[in-house]
Simulated scan of single mutants.
Amino acid sequence: MKYKQLGKSDLNISEVSFGCMSLQGDEEESIKMLHQALDKGINFFDTADLYDKGQNESVVGRAFKGMREKVVLATKVGNQWRPDGSGWDWNPSKAYILQAVEESLKRLQTDYIDLYQLHGGTIDDPIDETIEAFEQLKEQGKIRHYGISSIRPNVIREYVSRSNIASVMLQYSLLDRRPEEEVLELLQQHQIGVLARGSMAQGLLADKPAKSYLTYTLEEVQQAAEAVKVVAGKTRRASETAVRFVLHHPSVTSAVLGIRTEQQLEDALLAAQAEPLTDAEVRQLQEVLAAGKYEQHR
């Protein structure tokens, strides 16, 4: 497993990491998988207080109790469950973040979070107040670093210019190259790590039946999937090639893969071991479809 420094932080994380959102069902099986991932070199585990109303954090906390120093734990904040459980509301206020972190720390059974991320964000948020909350938590030692999870260029620009974020989590794949227009270069210039999710585009780049995706038609998705297979050849699988495409971009620190089954864990580990793509192979993939652009929140 290869490890990379996340932005300017002191966190060194595995190039392929474990997205815990997909974990569900038998808790003991989930914990077993988390342990297997750690044993095989994955050290970065990403969850959120939103997932399964906090139960996801609790499973991760149970899994790594007694081995805290071996893992890099990331979680997210900003979506507040309604008391009746009917849904959640966006709340990036300082008061809520300071309250929510205490609950996340309890569920994760730790006294610090390595990376605390704002789980979304809009340009109308009280951004300075949100940043104040994260900075206060850093000073208190309750979090080591903070970042945001967002695909909105206008929000990302504000945090780049006004805060000390270590990372941005965003969706990026051969079928979603919108970040290439300006976001990835901006983050690279400022030494802010990119955590890429959705690198297989809901499995469409890894042998799932084609369907339309974002602005791409079913036929265009088929073209992209076929190109991935061609580049994969006999040395890589399609899923490995899709992940390697994302990791080829110098701004990307880690591909965060949603893992629910042992097979998905095996696929993630194979992607980590796969041969990197050459520049020529990346160009070959990029030439198949025109890159999209963000239409909103510019």
Rank of each mutant, 00 (worst) to 15 (best):
E57V: 06
G7T: 05
Y213C: 07
V246Y: 03
L50N: 12
M21N: 11
H119D: 10
W90N: 04
R178N: 04
A224Y: 11
L115R: 02
L285F: 12
D49L: 04
V230D: 03
V72D: 02
V60Q: 06
E181K: 14
I97H: 00
A274I: 09
F45Q: 12
S30W: 00
L269P: 11
L270K: 15
R62Y: 07
A48T: 09
A272G: 15
T235Y: 04
L277F: 02
E275T: 15
L6C: 03
L50G: 03
D125K: 03
L98W: 04
G193H: 04
H190P: 00
Y112C: 06
E102I: 04
K4S: 12
Y216I: 01
L34Y: 06
S30F: 00
Y159Q: 03
K40A: 01
N154A: 01
S14Y: 02
E132S: 13
K106F: 02
L137P: 02
A290R: 09
Q286T: 14
T261M: 13
Q222K: 15
Q171F: 00
K53P: 02
V16C: 05
A201E: 09
G7A: 10
Q188V: 08
L11S: 04
Q263L: 05
Q5C: 15
L214K: 12
F44A: 03
F18I: 14
I192S: 06
Q191N: 11
L277A: 08
L184N: 05
N154T: 06
R197F: 04
L115V: 08
M200N: 12
T47R: 09
I123P: 09
A37I: 04
S86M: 06
T241A: 02
A63V: 14
E129M: 08
P250T: 10
Q286C: 14
G41C: 00
S150P: 08
V230H: 04
G87K: 14
V252D: 13
E132M: 06
V77G: 07
I148M: 09
E295V: 11
I13M: 03
K293P: 00
K8P: 03
D10C: 00
L205P: 13
S9K: 07
Y213Q: 12
T215C: 06
S149I: 11
R107W: 09
G141L: 11
K229P: 01
E240C: 06
S163N: 00
I127E: 08
K76M: 03
A201M: 10
A274T: 07
L269V: 14
A255F: 08
V221I: 09
T75F: 09
G147C: 13
L195M: 14
A63C: 08
E15A: 10
M1F: 07
R107Y: 09
R152E: 14
V101P: 01
M67C: 13
Q273T: 07
M33A: 01
S149Q: 14
V168N: 08
Q5T: 15
L214G: 01
D124N: 14
L184C: 05
L269G: 13
G54N: 07
I127A: 10
G85W: 02
E180S: 00
H119S: 09
K70C: 00
L218Y: 14
I143K: 03
S163T: 00
V194K: 08
K2M: 02
Y216V: 00
R260G: 06
E295H: 15
E181M: 03
A63F: 11
I151S: 12
G141F: 10
V288E: 02
Q296Y: 09
V252R: 13
G66L: 14
